[in-house]
Design a protein around this nucleic acid. Structure first.
Ligand SMILES: [Mn+2]
Ligand SMILES: [Mn+2]
Ligand SMILES: [Zn+2]
Ligand SMILES: [Zn+2]
Lengths: 138, 138
DNA sequence: ATATATTTTGCAACAATGTTGCATTGTTAT
DNA sequence: ATAACAATGCAACATTGTTGCAAAATATAT
């Protein structure tokens, strides 16, 4: 596990620092997506709030994590699959938010369907967010 | 137009106030969705920031406007169709965000497709946000 | 039309979230 | 080990959103 994290950082030409390792490990441990506040809580006073912001930003830029549009308009992050790289995300899966437990899931095997748009509209990215009850809460 | 606004407020058992009329008229004038900041800007110093927050909240509760999940996780609002009422929104249309001009459109005639979810997941609401170039920018 | 009851507003104070510059510390390359 | 470079912590600030309460506006009853 620790090796996997270090490798992932190396692969993306990022220096191996305590905060990056720790924050990445939170993502590997979590089953759902994490908000900034979640990480802040899990980390205690280990590192500064600013470091968390900057680390998340770096991870998004490198294609290590992706942001998730949510119905409550709070920012959440989840690990990307291997296909993503710096500047090129390929997270075309559906996201699910449980109204009961609040967990946000990446449904990696459910792809976002394409829809026909009015004339002149060109789609570059499609995000589908489903909310309801997850398999643990229903 | 003015009558239409007053009627809409009356229909929802809301007192007819200057701020509510003015904010509603901004939505009727706008072609896309509005963020809190847009309204604050259009209104100048006419009313307090807090009033705008409370008015938007009231309108959402009454089913007059709906919130739109966005990829940049900023809150946007747009007028609902007549079918919406207090506590019962029926805004099952696709939203489009233009990467060029920033406009957010309600594509009222494009409905969100249903997707098959893993076992145990129960969908209550589906939001599809498409981004790319709008008909004016492409 | 006036008086009363109810609701909405503005203000102030606060909380939460996010951003920036810069000196110090930690990491990498030589 | 040393130098070059990158990341971190801190402080200060900006933006966004929330709450309580007195004053003002609106709706209701007389
Ligand atoms: Mn995801
Ligand atoms: Mn809409
Ligand atoms: Zn759940
Ligand atoms: Zn456009």
């Amino acid at each position: 596990m620790h090796e996997r994290i270090v490798d992932l950082l190396k692969k993306n030409h990022l220096s191996i620092t305590e905060s990056r390792k720790k924050i990445l490990s939170h993502f590997f441990d979590a089953n759902g997506a994490l908000a900034h506040a979640d990480i802040e809580q899990k980390s205690g006073t280990e590192f500064d709030r600013v470091t968390i912001y900057r680390t998340l930003q770096t991870f998004v830029e490198k294609g290590i994590i992706h942001t998730i549009p949510t119905t409550d308009n709070s920012v959440r992050y989840a690990l990307c699959k291997d296909e993503c790289s710096a500047g090129h995300h390929h997270d075309d899966h559906v996201h699910f938010m449980c109204d009961e437990c609040g967990t946000t899931y990446c449904l990696d095997h459910v792809t976002v369907p394409k829809v026909a748009l009015p004339d002149g509209f060109k789609a570059m990215q499609n995000d589908l967010v489903v909310s309801g009850l997850c398999n643990k809460c229903s």
